[in-house]
Write a protein that binds this DNA or RNA. Structure first.
Lengths: 142, 142
DNA sequence: CCGTCGATTTAGAACCGTTCAAGTTCTGCC
DNA sequence: GGCAGAACTTGAACGGTTCTAAATCGACGG
């Protein structure tokens, strides 16, 4: 349920929308998308061939800083970026190929960190990551 | 509560214990230790100056593969290695400096992934990571 | 003992993902 | 048009990890 929600939110923030930023943001639209920087570059170049990798990284980092994108480090390989920041959810990752799914476990999420366990930290987020082997990887090797 | 439990477990597995592997395993002893590969190298070299970084990585990877060590990727910087694999626990990491603590939240841990959310994966582990800013980093900058 | 074979270690090069630096181009404003 | 600042590009640099080739070690059989 989005359309171009991301772009609209960025406009609402008075964020300067350049052609490069627009195609990068469009590449990220969607609720179950977990692209790497290189994949974003590939998609963006389909629309605007002269986009550079550095701009992709710059833009991704800005989106992360403004909370519109969540970086997910799971398993091997490059960071993946999750544009679904509205709905709280967890991730399921393949330890072998790095494939990533959104998951919504049942019956929990009272899980808070008691003050005695916070070590004086200012808490920002909680990440839950389930790890395993996807059917494909399970088939092609032990 | 350990002593040289790790080394003993490794012996029990018929794992060949060389001087290098021994000093590396000794560097990892402890329940609240979260060393990086470089830190392990430093400690190991205190006992055996000619240990190489490649051997540290080889050994760490073998320990991870046999389930005696858990790699923790949190925040920036290099992977940290957690020898506390007996007690299930979570982690609290500083987003700025990468400092890592073990935490034991209260009242939860029924959190299972229902079959309908497993996507055919063979599940191996669940990681919970709390992220924030440690008191020191909070003091020295916004 | 000696030679051989496989496992382990080493130094250094290679690799990958990401960031940085320097110069260029674009945008909006006067 | 001209200026200032932001954004972009290219390519080099960087940090962490893995790979490669060669040296070394240990166990075993002859």
């Amino acid at each position: 349920m989005s359309g171009t929600a991301l772009l609209e939110r960025l406009r609402a923030r008075d964020w300067r929308i350049t052609p490069q930023r627009r195609v990068i943001a469009q590449a990220l639209e969607g609720d179950h998308v977990h692209l790497t920087a290189e994949e974003v570059l590939g998609i963006a170049r389909g629309q605007l061939p002269e986009v550079s990798l550095a701009t992709v990284y710059n833009t991704l980092n800005e989106l992360v800083a403004m909370g519109e994108l969540q970086p997910v480090d799971a398993g091997p390989g490059p960071t993946r970026y999750d544009p679904n920041v509205a709905q709280p959810h967890h991730h399921l990752a393949c330890l072998r190929c790095g494939e990533l799914h959104d998951v919504y476990p049942v019956g929990e999420d009272s899980m808070e960190l008691p003050r005695s366990q916070r070590f004086g930290y200012q808490l920002v987020s909680r990440e839950v990551l389930f790890q395993g082997y996807c059917p494909r990887c399970r088939a092609t090797a032990p």
